[in-house]
Nucleic acid binder design. Sequence first.
RNA 1: GCGGGCGUAGUUCAAUGGUAGAACGGCAGCCUUCCAAGCUGCAUAUGCCGGUUCGAUCCCGGUCGCCCGCUCCA
Length: 502
Amino acid sequence: MTQSADKPVDMKDIVALCKRRGFIFQASDIYGGYNGFWDFGPLGTELKNNLRDSWWKNMVVTPPIGPDGTPVSIVGLDSAIIQNPRVWQASGHVGGFNDPMVDCRESKARYRADHLLVYTNDGDIWPAFYNVEDAADIPRRLKKLKQNEDISTYKIVSFDQISADDYAKIIGPDTKTAGTLTEPRQFSMMLDTFPGVIRDEERKAYLRPETAQGIFTNYKNIIDSMRVKPPFGIAQIGKAFRNEVTPRNFIFRSREFEQMEMEWFCPPEDHAMWFEFWVDQRKKWWESVGMDANKIFLHDIEKSELAHYSARTIDIEYKYPFSDPNFDELEGIAHRGDYDLSKHQEHSGQKLEYFDQQENRRYLPHVIEPAAGLTRGVLALICEAYTIDENRPSGVYLNFHPSMAPKKAAILPLTAKEDHVPIATKLYLDLREEFSVDLDIKQNIGKRYARQDEIGTPYCFTIDNDTISDQTVTVRERNTMAQERIHMDKIAEFLREKMKAV
RNA sequence: GCGGGCGUAGUUCAAUGGUAGAACGGCAGCCUUCCAAGCUGCAUAUGCCGGUUCGAUCCCGGUCGCCCGCUCCA
């Protein structure tokens, strides 16, 4: 068996396989598609559910043991996608990311309207400047444009304050001719909707751009109802929506996607310890679902690039085929401080402080947020599993960890003859009670093995004549194509064992 | 949002201003005691809209989608 580690994997081949074998389809395919949206097919859905369920189990059902040796406390939540719009004003998503942008028709450059400064006077030539680093550049450019070089003779006005009648006078920062700038246009990252049967601007609401805010707004309900106290976590999985400027790279950047977020509320002084703890835990989890540690990179985000709410963020990045030789985000672990709770406290007027009776003090907990992309996780699992092997009929197989594989096993009667099929059917009916399994009767055995390779089924159990006399079947292992015989009574236990192993 | 490239069965490719062909895949049947074998048959495509033309998959325009670069990315 040759695994061509040196041969670069082409995203096109992965996308084609995903369609051909029912993992992921372009949304609205029969209408020509729809940019930024994707549908999960039968196997993609099972794969996504497996990844999702593993996260939920590791967060909510069997959360990790904390640094002090006792299990940490995390509870689950499923909040609405559409919330009171004030939630997004408080969080900063509406105001902060709704910047009007101006385009230059000539230079093709784009500017934020409020940062584009126009030097106005009584004349009809108004030069505009953008992010000028060197103060001497302004008189220099004014001279080139044959304008008064004395800055003090101008009144400086940001572009968004200028009347549309005057646009024709303005010379854009990267051009020499006037009138090339467009009117400011709103670039909103939020997707709007209008609840209520009458469409009314007053009723504008938003599809959530992250699941986190649903957690913050329920923080008090959960403290009061679930007898939890800091440090503790609230976990949520769900769809989120963002108007990405350029959806690209298959499902990596889409406008509708799914997140797995956990907000960890802790006393302010403990944030550094918990930050380290969760970075370590999250990296281990990705490895446990089959990601290659060598393709995982912890990216400590520079201060200047941090989101508005974050004091520190480490991204867990993966070397996707389109990223290579670099990495792209899989999960971000952010220290959000008390930013969100204090904003919601301010905007809602509700007290969100926690009162610690033992220490007799009130505080807003600090929040560590491991926020993983479920959709991106699925993409990473597929990319990781995609293995070229020219020595096998399919030429490729998906090397999923058994716990992630959409189908754990295929039950294959060697022939479609009467005496193999009933045994196979019975085995299938037994196994499907516990595992997602396939029963495939038609066509020759090689073809059926090849199909299972392409969908990443780790084991095939084949019923042949010997099965009739001694109740053993052949186990065919996906990665090695090796075969061994195993008694039918041992199959469930065999699979159970393989699901666990990392 | 800009620039460039591309759009033919499920996939990968062919062909042509005169009505589209293959391989693999799929389905049905036969055969088959372990890796897409063999045989027979079947189905499936010029993204969409418009223009030029006697006739357009081919030429032109628009649109949608994909890829690359830029931009953006809470």
